[in-house]
Design a protein around this nucleic acid. Sequence first.
RNA 1: GGUCCCUUCGUCUAUCGGUUAGGACAGCUGGUUUUCAUCCUGCAAAGGGGGGUUCGAUUCCCCCAGGGACCGCCA
Length: 465
Amino acid sequence: MSKVATRFAPSPTGALHIGGVRTALFNWLYSKNHKGTFHLRIEDTDKERSKDEYKDQIIKSLKWIGVEYDGEEYIQSTKINDHINIANELLKNGNAYKCYCSSEEIEEQKKRARQKKLPYIYNRKWRDIPESEAPKGVKSVIRFKSKIEGTSILKDLVQGDVEIDNNTIEDFIILRNDGTPTYNLSATVDDHQMGMTHIIRGDDHKINTFKQIQIYLAMNWELPKFAHIPLIHTIEGKKLSKRDNASTLDDYSKIGIMPDALRNYLLRLGWSFEDKEIFTLEESIEHFNLKGIGKSPSKLDVSRILSMNEYYIKNIDENSLYQNLVEYCKIYKEKINSDKETKIKSSLYFLKNKAKTLVDIYNNAKFIINDIIEFNEDDFNLIDDKAKKIILEFSKELSNISNINKENLEPVVNSLIKKNDTNFKGVGQPLRIALTGSKFGPGLYDIIIALGKDEALKRLAKIIS
RNA sequence: GGUCCCUUCGUCUAUCGGUUAGGACAGCUGGUUUUCAUCCUGCAAAGGGGGGUUCGAUUCCCCCAGGGACCGCCA
């Protein structure tokens, strides 16, 4: 077999949801595991619904999650003439025929079948009528002459052998009456011309595969291998659709999920490798195979995404984490000034312990990011005279400390606790509020170290004035 | 309604006929702790039902039930 080539072929008619992203990921991983190529094909032949903004969103999403396609994106609409040529060739060699039934006529037949609760299948009316008897001035569609007798077997790389009766596949339309090709024709011709060796796609395409295989056979083209992966279901157990909430990548990046975490989650959704849960990009390429794909659909579990994200926050190196944070804040919160880089980076060790998402890190790092802090009103009201006295006392001590670290700060706080006959909260809380604006947040010593002596003193002075 | 697919803890899954059915997330305990967390103990939690085959079935076969996908001159 020639070098593995796979593709992801979305239609730009809506936002790409994470089911599609997973399909892209699997295709990409499969090809990379085999040192092959992966391609992106934009199936934009539905002129009514295709939009450039969706195409851009698809490309952006793949990039965000780290799936890179080889070469330029293949734009299906630019190949329509090729598709039409193949339709004509199929017509010429007797594998297709012109059908002069009007859409109204077909609709009528479908309606009747539904009423009688019979399965509808096009009645093949024009299949054997010679061209000489064709009506004049009536537009025709071209239908593929599908097999009627016998059965077909799909040797699916995930599902095993799937057998169906050929007569359940109707004579499907390959060219509309306006002369444009339909999906099954276009996809097949493109896959062939692009040299695809493996077609990995959602379960919902299985019937299409039986149709497409017949085109390959009729054209005498080499058949690619097929793998149909189970769909992702919502928690209610239905197919994930564009209408469902929280299903695009943006929905997850918005709440502070990192691309690597989502990639890892998606990889393990419906695929497994021993008991391994965490896969770096390199490991996922190394271990990915079709064998590990389960046969049953899997449900999307947001708490799992969150915990995966938390794992990545706590375990990736701090430079990457910082980059993720900066990216996130730039898009969704505020631009982080580069002069804060050192302070934030050196604070990540404690910030990340309190975070499941980048939002959490941002919220807890606000007191570093912004020079002017916003006070939570209720918390601010806790700063009474007694609290101010403690803040003042602490400030004096702090100004005498030359080396700001926990070892030096702790005795100061402890002595203040004793002196004021209170507990840690009595001292820690006012200080925390004064320094960050909120009584919740990072550990007190971490806060002071993060701010540095001068900035801390400045903030303490401000609140008692 | 027809065709096809699926069925192990709540969720994602492991098991290539013999296991106390394993792991992870979530949940619940207990401990550490400076708020909030983290971290560490531990607990609980599963083979849809019925038939076979077999010394032995979660595993192989059949039936049923349940769920899902498809059934466009959309892709």
